[in-house]
């Protein structure tokens, strides 16, 4: 049971690991480019384990920004995880304290999305499944950082081999997987417009916090729906 759950987690996380791998390598290469040693880059991937914020971190470190400001920016980019862990509470309440500590550490975007989806589909969210899914992304993330840091120059231009398009499409797929939820369209529309406007007027990485907040505030302001019969369409995804 435990072993089959773990294996199911490994299988589920595998395509995400593939999609994230180029970014781990890219981070390693860019980190070395910004004055990190190979060990620093690997250390950051192993401890922070949050791709976008790691990119922001090395970028700001490379331009000699005050350390407290670097940490604050990392915190801001990762602020969405507060919402993830709040939203996940109902699915992982049965984990032991130690399991929760590990689960929170592994709580990256796809881990959140898949756990939430699994819980909503009524499938059991066991620690074995969660750990399998998380580790198959976490461990290669570190290895890819190492590879990227060593062979940084070889990656050269990720656009030439089309790697840059993978992450937006991956996130698009995640957004679409939530399309059966209440008020999906207005929320997505408002967040889309707000994030594009924030990107234009404020700049990255604030488009994430500002855009997300716009959609969330809209959801909170709309009149509460009738106690809906929760019918969650079963995803066709394997």
């Amino acid at each position: 049971m435990i072993r089959s759950d773990f294996r199911e987690g490994l299988r589920g996380g595998f395509p995400i690991m593939l999609a994230a791998s180029p970014f781990g390598a890219l981070f390693g290469a860019l980190a070395v480019d910004n004055g990190f040693s190979i060990a620093d880059a690997v250390f950051m991937s192993a401890t922070v384990y949050a791709g976008a914020s790691q990119m922001v971190g090395i970028e700001l470190f490379g331009s000699n920004v005050q350390p407290w400001l670097v940490v604050l920016s990392v915190f801001a980019v990762n602020f969405r995880h507060v919402l993830y862990s709040a939203s996940l509470a109902k699915h992982i309440r049965h984990f032991s304290f130690g399991q929760k500590l590990i689960a929170f550490f592994l709580l990256v975007d796809p881990q959140y999305a898949e756990t939430e989806q699994r819980g909503e589909r009524g499938l059991p969210v066991t620690f074995a499944w969660y750990a399998g899914f998380g580790l198959v992304i976490y461990v290669p993330w570190i290895i890819n950082t190492l590879i990227g840091a060593i062979f940084g120059q070889l990656i050269g231009d990720p656009k030439a081999i089309g790697l840059d398009v993978l992450l937006p499409i991956y996130f698009l797929g995640l957004v679409m997987s939530f399309r059966t939820r209440d008020r999906f369209l207005p929320i997505v529309a408002v967040s889309a417009v707000a994030s594009v406007a924030a990107m234009h007027f404020v700049g990255s990485p604030w488009h994430v916090s500002i855009g997300a907040l716009a959609g969330i505030v809209l959801a909170a302001c709309l009149p509460p729906k009738r106690p809906a019969v929760e019918v969650h369409a079963v995803e066709q995804e394997a």
């Binding site: 992450l167 999906f184 967040s191 889309a192 994030s195 716009a214 969330i216 959801a219």
Partner: peptide, 13 residues
Amino acid sequence: AVPAAVLTTLVAP
């Protein structure tokens, strides 16, 4: 609304 809202900000821009 959190997941759709957050993930949309990584897609739309």
